[in-house]
Design a binder for these strands. Structure first.
Lengths: 186, 186
DNA sequence: TATTATAGTGAACAATCGTTCACTGTCAAG
DNA sequence: CTTGACAGTGAACGATTGTTCACTATAATA
């Protein structure tokens, strides 16, 4: 019963991105008294599932048992990152208005870990610097490459030995800078 | 100024897993009146960064537009309006309650396009199959490897020529299946 | 049977919440 | 200079919040 109610709270939190009030919980739990909710919360607090400070209730981050036991070979910094990351969107996208998603089809950046089928997040509001991965148009062809410099002028370099560096003949249009990669398995 | 305050709110939310009250925001913003906060929130609401319903303030989720392939180039501003916006969270995370984020530190999966510093989304509710990338514990060491089979028993294979396949001596514990990868540049 | 712990009801409480009001100072446009 | 928009102050408002109290119903225990 307690587990079920905890699940209902978590679900509400994921849906609304905030904790339900006692009144809302009384609807969720199907009880008529706020005091019944109050006692439930006290129990959840004793179980360590919920934290209360100054009348503000928050969900305690579920400590992944996996992380506690980690020995050499696998990351420990993951713990804090895991707890603090509220959404992958916010992690990867800094400027939602000037960013968009693009699907990768070629293998020109494969040695940089960008595979065909991946999605790249492109931001066109930030200024391209040397070393950035950019979406550029050379001679009427759109490509994704590393931006580099040679003799003072920009060139595009693939992360794949089979591709040669591109020296733009006429002009080089840069549509945006790749700020993130997202890949989905299965 | 508005952007800065929005950032402060997001930061508070990330830290406390709840929205700050107006009083708390007045401390964050370094203003003395709750009304100044109120007006700020109204502005953020008009910008679409924040949502208010029944006196409950929440952060609006980030979503960005999804374009096609890179080679296809870019749509005109008119066409751009027709594109649908998606959330990377929903794209990568199918089961939010059984998934978690892990930060990669090793280079054992580098040929699969998973680099050190990347984040992997791990789902522990789905059944591992041959060919999946899994988080596994062999002989008290946690690793991320391809799951494969040899002579009817499971083995772990790295995506890096420098690592040899692992044949678990005792038992093989699989914590979850990698269902996605997220990488952040800059 | 008597007892005790448990979960829920319903009413009340002070504290805090978000909101509104009238007002002040500042800075740029007319 | 005058005007008007804008951001902030400080005080007040009712509504809602989490909490507490006394009490009831149920079930398990001795």
């Amino acid at each position: 019963m307690l587990q079920k109610r905890y699940g209902q709270i978590v679900e509400f939190y994921r849906l609304n991105k905030r904790m339900p009030t006692y009144k809302e919980m009384s609807v969720l739990f199907n009880v008529k008294s706020k005091n019944a909710v109050f006692k439930t919360i006290v129990k959840l607090e004793h179980l360590g599932l919920v934290k209360k400070e100054e009348r503000h209730i928050t969900l305690k981050p579920i400590s992944i048992k996996l992380l506690g036991n980690i020995e050499a070979g696998f990351p420990s910094p993951a713990e804090e990152e895991l707890l603090d990351t509220i959404s992958i969107d916010r992690l990867l996208v800094k400027n939602p208005n000037t960013s968009f998603l693009l699907k990768v089809s070629g293998d020109s950046m494969i040695e940089a870990g960008i595979m065909p089928g991946d999605f790249v997040i492109v931001d066109r509001s930030i200024e391209p610097k040397e070393g950035d991965i950019v979406i550029a148009c050379v001679d009427n062809n759109w490509t994704m490459k590393y931006l580099s410099k040679e003799n003072g002028s920009y060139i595009l370099i693939a992360a794949n030995k089979n591709y040669k560096p591109i020296k733009p003949k006429s002009e080089l249009t840069i549509a945006g800078v790749v700020v993130g990669v997202a890949r989905k398995y299965r």
